[in-house]
């Protein structure tokens, strides 16, 4: 057999080259996360070693036990509560509106959709000021409800948008078949349209959940009681002051507050992508 340079390139260099670049880019992109986990598992003595040590010589969970207290449990609880309720409320309300916009000849439909789209870019502090005044008048300041409302408001446009694009792709005939068979609209919506929109419902609920889990500023300005703080508020308001130089402790906390959402996302990533892509990339 004759040695062939192009065969070598095509058979080995390109495949292995691609594999190596893919591996390297992934490694670089997830390296901050790896570093976070690695630091959290280090013993205090190893943290400041130079050159940086990626794999701890001895795995230690000390820092986890050190920072895990009722305060952390409380902010996690608050965050889960707010994020879950905001996700459910924004998704259900968004889906209902999206159904109406998708199926009925509502006047000014395209303007409404354009409004929803552009409201994603509205200056949030501008919204927050009047919301602050309104919530104060309603006596809702310093309640978790104020945060749920805030997070619902800023995510509702995207849930409407995602759900509408998804529902647009469900053939109307399926609903008509059910209608002919005697189903009411409510039954059609809850027993046919919503089950068929599962990927989009998952995507929007997850989107709201992630946004809420991330959101710092509503919590910062609407909440004053320390025991109502969510994760971002709790960390920035109390933890950062107390643990300024306890790097292993801070990284452990970082890992702990990432885990709930990380786990959800591991399981729902595929579904999320399907809903997101079907909902945003039309046709």
């Amino acid at each position: 057999m004759k040695f062939s340079f192009s065969k070598l390139v095509r058979g080995y260099i390109i495949p292995y080259g691609l594999q190596a670049s893919a591996l390297a880019s992934t490694a670089i992109l997830i390296s901050p996360i790896v570093w976070m986990v690695s630091t959290s598992l280090k013993k205090e003595s190893e943290v400041f070693d130079r050159p940086p040590v990626w794999i701890p010589s001895e795995i230690s969970f000390d820092s986890y036990f050190r920072i895990m207290n009722s305060f952390v449990a409380n902010i996690l609880y608050n965050s889960i509560l707010v994020a879950l309720l905001a996700a459910i409320i924004a998704t259900v309300i968004g889906a209902m509106t999206a159904y109406a916009l998708s199926r009925f000849a509502i006047p000014g439909k395209s303007t409404i959709m354009l409004f929803f789209l552009s409201s994603l870019a509205f200056p949030i502090p501008l919204l927050m000021m009047s919301m602050y005044i309104l919530l104060m008048k309603m006596g809702l300041l310093d309640t978790l409800l104020s945060m749920i409302i805030g997070h619902t408001v800023i995510t509702l446009p995207i849930t409407v948008w995602l759900m509408k694009n998804f529902i647009d792709q469900i053939p109307k005939e399926i609903e008509e078949a059910a209608y002919v068979e005697g189903a009411s609209f409510l039954r059609i919506i809850f027993f046919i349209v919503f089950p068929l929109s599962m990927p989009a419902l998952t995507a929007s609920a997850l989107f709201v959940f992630v946004t809420s889990w991330n959101e710092l500023f509503f919590g910062l300005s609407f909440i004053s009681s320390p025991d109502l703080r969510t994760v971002p508020v709790g960390i920035s308001q109390s933890f950062l002051q107390e643990f300024k130089t306890d790097w292993t402790g801070m990284m452990s906390l970082a890992v702990i507050v990432t885990i709930p959402i990380g786990i959800i996302f591991v399981f729902l990533q595929k579904s999320f992508l399907r809903g997101m892509i079907a909902g945003s990339v039309k046709g």
């Binding site: 053939p171 005939e173 399926i174 008509e176 078949a177 059910a178 002919v180 068979e181 046919i192």
Partner: peptide, 10 residues
């Protein structure tokens, strides 16, 4: 009862 072109099965 109605049968549709694309079947419209659930």
């Amino acid at each position: 009862a109605m049968v549709f072109q694309n079947y419209a099965l659930y």
